[in-house]
Write a protein that binds this DNA or RNA. Structure first.
Lengths: 332, 332
DNA sequence: GCGATAAATGTAAGCGTTTTCGGAATGCAG
DNA sequence: CTGCATTCCGAAAACGCTTACATTTATCGC
């Protein structure tokens, strides 16, 4: 069923049908109602592809993410989708799995689909290869990066000062009397280095050993492994800061299994402030890196750009430490 | 940059450019290479919208979900997206928030966008209103339901026998010596009633009281609340089965806070077998309702239909009980 | 009721592709 | 070198809309 068919049924021209749908006030009430009745009777659905070809926009934005199963990403993408839906845009989703090649391929596909804009969630890598396609994409379409940073034509970055969040966590633990604080890090993630720097700064400022850092993979098992390694290597520690709630949950799990009291013997701090921080017992003190706020800022930024409004290329949010049960005073 | 521009640069016709892109073997190697060189030099990106208008397909499928932040949905959607990407299809995402009106609106939008098919993840409600639009959607596009069931033209359902999963959980607990088993349920979810029926059957078959059921909301707090209510009402119980890992985590949390040993005093069983079941201490015994398998079946089913292959309208998978640390022998 | 102005509707071009069809160029057998 | 089959390529229609412009119809002051 095309507009032509509706037009024939209503005895008007195809242009009038189009107007009834898009600019109802441009057509006389009488004819308008006649057409609307037929639209309803036939359950007419306009073809947005044909429309898109004419107006040169599908009112769609592409969202690239590493893995939507990650609760942080899921939350961000949820917020983006709802936000853009309210603005009348659709969301094309993808999971690159962190592969630069996949990312390249996806960007290509999304440009082919004529997206109006692109949002990349935490997916800029430090390799050169991954970024080139973002830069070229920026030439045809505005690109917003969440939790990543890149300078370039038509590229906007939304960030959270994650290093500052880690630093705050260290300060918080020091105030609780802790001196032997270990940091579990996965440097491979985008902000891994920024977080590490935050830890070092926090340690230095408090006269602690800034080398108490363990490189571990970003997973539940990684967190467990970290604890086992600390014990194997007979390290002295009363607190663990992690760059990921999931890692913190793993550390917590290992500590409890080994009979440690948390926070009685060891304090644990997570990062991201996901729902999972509330699910463990004890619940996890965590640094909130403002996932939702970043997502909202991304929507606002991209929408601004699409409206041709002047838009700052960089937005930085401040993290927030959320104390819960997994942190307590230094024992003794 | 349009094909026309490429054609002019290469000194060929637009048709030849199209052929170089879509059917390279139809054009003489010499001209082909000439065109390909220009395509690369100019970083040409074809307009899939124009293409879609001609071939009457955007190679896109729409996925409707309640809330992608739910880990179960996230996992399902991830699997769908990856699966369809490999088949050359894009995924249009949406979160209906469970509102029938939103669902209706989304379906409308996706039909306008000319999706090739629709997958609804766990979003058929028992109200009549929510289903009518699915049925009418089926008239223009194949619809696959995950974890829901509906009969109709062009409608396919992928299910898991969730009641059977709950029944198995009851049997498992009975084998461990438990007799006072409570079931925490949220009847508002699609399979809520099927699960309840599974619990009743399991209880009956083992000569237990099948009325030991508590209606609670599907959330962490719901699980906690359930435990408090059992205690307030002075119920006797040594095991709790839930319809949701999240609920189980809440119950576990409340029990641990109140000083109960799990599984020493009380056993807890979750449902969905999400990552979070591994994150708690003790980890949660859970019924796996085959989210990934359902998603894969949905992809296969929809693809089959799109290929005009005969396809069964209903696929039912069998759940699997995954024992972990939260269940143990009846105390004493 | 007349002409001038405003409102309503129709006509047709154009959006960037794919693809059918026919013509030109090429290859090959005789 | 001719004739025919085959390969390659271009012209043009088609996809279903939007919208500028043209045309028709309604409105209004006089």
């Amino acid at each position: 069923m095309r507009m032509k068919d509706i037009a024939d049924l209503a005895g008007v021209s195809i242009a009038t049908v189009s107007r009834v749908i898009n600019n109802p006030d441009q057509v006389k009430p009488e004819t308008r109602e006649k057409v609307q009745k037929i639209l309803e009777q036939t359950n007419f659905v306009a073809n947005a592809v044909a429309r898109g070809l004419v107006i040169n926009s599908m009112r769609t934005i592409g969202v690239l993410t590493v893995d939507i199963r990650d609760m942080f990403f899921a939350r961000v993408i949820y917020t983006i989708e709802r936000g853009f839906k309210d603005l009348g845009y659709n969301v094309l989703l993808s999971n690159t799995g962190g592969e630069p090649e996949e990312k390249k391929r996806y960007i290509q596909v999304m440009l082919e689909q004529q997206v109006d804009g692109l949002i990349l969630v935490g997916s800029v890598f430090r390799e050169r290869t991954g970024n080139k396609h973002i830069l070229t994409a920026g030439r045809s379409v505005p690109v917003v990066l969440i939790n990543s940073f890149l300078e370039g034509e038509n590229i906007y970055s939304i960030l959270c000062d994650e290093g500052e969040g880690i630093r705050e966590a260290v300060n918080y633990l020091v105030k609780l009397g802790h001196r032997d604080i270990y940091y579990f890090i996965d440097t491979k993630s985008f902000s891994g280095l920024a977080k590490l720097e935050g830890f070092r700064r926090g340690a230095r400022e408090n006269g602690l050993d800034e080398r108490k850092v363990l490189e571990i993979p970003r997973s539940l098992e990684g967190g467990e492994e970290g604890v086992y390694r600390l014990l194997e290597e007979k390290k002295k520690f009363s607190a663990i800061v992690t760059g990921e709630d999931l890692t913190a949950a793993g550390a917590l799990k290992a500590l409890l299994k080994l009979g440690y009291k948390v926070p009685g013997d060891v304090s644990v701090v997570g990062f991201n402030n996901l729902l999972l921080a509330e699910m463990t017992t004890p619940s996890l003190t965590s640094v909130d890196n403002m996932g939702e706020a970043m997502a909202m800022a991304a929507v606002q930024t991209l929408y601004n750009v699409l409206q041709k409004n002047p838009t700052p290329p960089k937005t930085v949010l401040t993290p927030l430490l959320v104390p819960r049960e997994s942190t307590g005073a230094f024992p003794g």
